[in-house]
Nucleic acid binder design. Structure first.
Lengths: 217, 217
DNA sequence: GTATAACTTGCACTCAGTCTACTTATGCAC
DNA sequence: GTGCATAAGTAGACTGAGTGCAAGTTATAC
């Protein structure tokens, strides 16, 4: 895609990577709150000011790595085969992600991803910062549902927020278990079962689980 | 409860209120980001240092006002009549809140609440800060479901996150409409309909809405 | 009425993030 | 290759949030 890039572009990319990697390594070693921006800049051999031109905030040094996937759910719904309901597409995609050990599902053994999870989960402000992605994901999904499944705006928003809540919780649960030391193959069966349960709850509702009587009226 | 409080207690409470009110007034007038802690402290006639002993962060000057209700959903579930399913209790409680114009539902005409909503909704970082309450609410609800409805931990967490997501969205929607200028009586029918829909989706699932076939397999 | 504990204050400090003016490196035209 | 426009990087001062500390002040207990 971006193949005939000049020296300038390549250098920029390398600087970006160097800063990001240096920061993550320092945070992993000493803790996010114990490392200052100045220290990261020094270790990465750029000026403080340059660092800020690549990463607008300290938080971004870490969570920018997760930003790519924020609208994934929306894309999955938009690109689904015409005969497939949105929720089925999301379910299939998620289960597929688990079997591929896609880091976005939290189920992975890749060391860099684990380091990243450890840093984030060990730092409350970073966990909070991640919610921005959840919200963006909700909006993208709501728009996709609204436009491709002919749902009224409010219905789409309610559905999207429910779906994202479940997927988020599933991934968070995986991340926590993986960070706690379980290897992905051992966790896989549980992760699949949890995902099946989550999507079934989404499709069939909580009524049956919660001693139902559907609603009271 | 705290009736025979001494002069010291009363003074403290008054100082707390004075700071909080002053801050909100300034934020409402000039914008949250345009007002510094120092200005708030001066206007409230306390030292900067004292302000921080009442409110650990600038954010808390605003969102501490919403903190009371964060575990409300958990309490509702715990205190429900023994024959009532949790979701029905939450639904009833929420609809009741709407009819009482409880500010927590977003449906209110009380000027102080409207000012608060305006400041929060007009300041991205405060909106983000509110998510902490949502998360706390989820945890409290999950615990309540786990303990009083005999749900396994993961099931309870999944259910709780869905339920909170819907209630949060309903209240947010009300807040936005009310801030946009609709008076609560005009909005009430819509808010009730939206709530009914949300709780029905929770109880019966998204399957039917999303061109179902429940799940694939 | 004094001792004590709780509350308040001023000051100096660290760190995140921004602004301005300046230097250096790259891309490109010739 | 030379030169120039422009993008990237640097230095250093500045603001504002939040903290630590040592001293001052005030309610309360005795």
């Amino acid at each position: 895609m971006s193949e005939q890039t000049g020296l300038r572009e390549r250098k920029k990319l390398r600087t970006y990577q160097a800063i990001s990697d240096t920061a993550l390594a320092l945070f992993a070693e000493h803790g996010y709150d114990q490392v200052s921006i100045t220290q990261v800049a020094e270790a990465a051999e750029v000026s403080r000011r340059t660092l800020f031109s690549y990463f607008p905030t300290k938080e971004d040094l870490v969570i920018s790595r997760m930003a790519d996937h924020e609208t994934e759910a929306g894309r999955v719904v938009r690109n689904r085969p015409p005969d497939q309901p949105p929720l089925a597409a999301l379910r299939t995609h998620y289960l597929d992600g688990l079997s591929r050990r896609d880091p976005i599902t939290g189920l992975t053994d890749l060391e860099p991803a684990l380091v990243l999870y450890r840093v984030i989960l060990g730092t409350p402000s970073l966990v909070a910062g991640m919610f921005k992605f959840k919200v963006n994901g909700e909006e993208a999904l709501a728009a996709a549902l609204h436009e491709t499944a002919a749902l009224p705006t409010l219905t789409a928003k309610l559905a999207a927020t429910q779906i994202m809540a479940v997927m988020w919780m599933l991934s968070l649960d995986n991340r926590e278990r993986v960070v706690a030391g379980t290897c992905s193959d051992d966790l896989y069966p549980h992760a699949v079962a949890a995902a099946e349960q989550g999507f079934t709850q989404l499709a069939n509702g909580l009524g049956t689980l919660l001693t139902a009587t559907t609603t009271t009226t």
